[in-house]
């Protein structure tokens, strides 16, 4: 059993790592990581923009985004992926690579979910902080950037991480439109071996687990670091580092 798994890894590690590359597109773990990182990197700013639009008093911003969020949250991700994959080329005539279809779908889908998390964090903060910032002359967006979001995002770090982890796991669905990711590589291996599905997919599960666990771990550590700093129990800055900080630090 364990020797089977070791044998599979020994024989197929390159396929699992980078797919058919360089004879085909970059795939395997590399593609999964790339897709995850890009999806998260785009979904995060998108979610903040969506949250601000939903909080906006302007119906031109508020209504379409509210509709988009409700729609996205009410439809299975798989449906959106298949729609994107079949409809977009049909409507536009463009030949969209599966990787791009998957990335955009993930960004929209997870961006919508994340926007609700972000919006919740902002609303939970109450009016006082925004009022104080506006009374000092900050613009609405300035107040958001320097006062509201640093607090709101910090408060919802656990939920944000949940969405990030869900995003990584959802990259597996790219398999249905032939995105050559880690799942795709594993099922290729399974098709060749035929008799060892448990072993093959055990490797797959283990790899995903390690990725998601590492991300959660990084998040916990980051959160702890911020908490320590804000509680003031971090090492007190020296006069020299203070002067530097005054020059270089972004208020967070």
């Amino acid at each position: 059993m364990i020797s089977d798994i070791v044998a599979i890894i020994r024989d197929y590690w390159l396929l699992l790592l980078i797919g058919q590359y360089p004879n085909g597109p970059l795939g395997g773990l590399a593609a999964t990581l790339m897709l995850s990182v890009l999806a998260i990197a785009f979904a995060f700013p998108v979610s903040i923009a969506l949250a601000l639009a939903r909080l906006s008093k302007s119906p031109f911003l508020n209504w379409p985004v509210t509709a988009l969020v409700y729609f996205t949250r009410g439809v299975p991700l798989l449906m959106l992926i298949l729609w994107g994959y079949f409809l977009v080329p049909l409507v536009t005539g463009a030949n969209v690579p599966a990787f791009l279809t998957m990335l955009v779908t993930l960004v929209v889908y997870q961006g919508a979910f994340l926007s609700e998390v972000v919006r919740g964090g902002i609303v939970a903060l109450g009016h006082g902080q925004m009022e104080a910032a506006r009374a000092l002359g900050h613009s609405y967006l300035g107040a958001m950037r320097y006062v509201i979001l640093p607090q709101a995002l910090y408060n919802v770090i656990p939920s944000i991480i949940s969405v990030f982890v869900a995003t990584i796991k959802d990259t597996t669905l790219g398999y249905v439109i032939n995105v050559p990711d880690l799942t795709f590589a594993a099922s290729q291996i399974n098709n060749q071996l035929l008799t060892q599905p448990f072993q093959v997919f055990f490797i797959l599960a283990a790899v995903y687990y390690v990725i998601c666990w590492s991300l959660s771990r990084v998040a916990v550590l980051t959160e702890r670091r911020i908490t320590r700093r804000r509680a003031g129990t971090a090492p007190q800055p020296t006069a020299k580092s203070l002067k530097l900080a005054a020059l270089t630090d972004q208020p967070s």
């Binding site: 009022e131 104080a132 910032a133 009374a135 640093p150 804000r230």
Partner: peptide, 11 residues
């Protein structure tokens, strides 16, 4: 403007 509830930025 000074508020009843201070409203300092806690971060």
């Amino acid at each position: 403007f000074v508020f009843q509830s201070f409203n300092l930025f806690p971060h």
